[in-house]
Amino acid sequence: MIIVTSFIRQSVAGLRALLVLTVVLGLLYPALVWGVGQAVGRSQAAGSLVTVDGAVVGSSLIGQEWKGEKWFHSRPSAGDYTGDVSGGSNLGHGPDLDAAVAERAKQAGIPVQGSPADALTASASGLDPHVTPENAAQQVARVSAARGLPASDVQRLVDEHTQGRTLGFLGEPRVNVLQLNLALQGLTTAATG
């Protein structure tokens, strides 16, 4: 009985404590971080958005789906880069994954053997903005043929957009597909214009 009354009394105290903590941790703390972001990191806080002629065309952090021969393609995605959902295939190593990979290879028109692993595997987020430099290099011939550009020019563009490891050792070498394709479009305009 003493335990029960004690539990009730402590619950009432706990409710009041939770309300005060909610004001501090649920309102003031996020507001403080938001405010700092507005002062010193507005672009990052907004999502590192990329604009062309004043219109937002994407985020440099979020991968996009690129259809057609003339663009560099992103990795396969379990969510088709729609952005309203995120996640991966969750397939473990085994026949189901092998079948999915064969299907992706057919869709992309590339062989299973000899293609870079990231070209045939879906990322964890379904929004991976990067491909490996090997993946990009393998797409150079297709893209340059479709655009009528010299392959060497397109490969140079890939090289320029290859980011090395951060600080020389952190993470992996990678190519941001959105930025590469925007530069590619600029190159095409310059060549034809």
């Binding site: 907004a46 789906e65 952005g83």
Partner: peptide, 28 residues
């Protein structure tokens, strides 16, 4: 984290038109 690119904004999910003409939702 914010300076590194983690977002912090009050925006609703916004649909944008991508460079290749597709649609994509940018989360906030």
């Amino acid at each position: 984290l914010l300076l590194g690119g983690v977002i912090s904004n009050l925006a609703e999910p916004t649909t944008i038109t991508t460079v290749s003409g597709g649609q994509q939702v940018i989360q906030g």
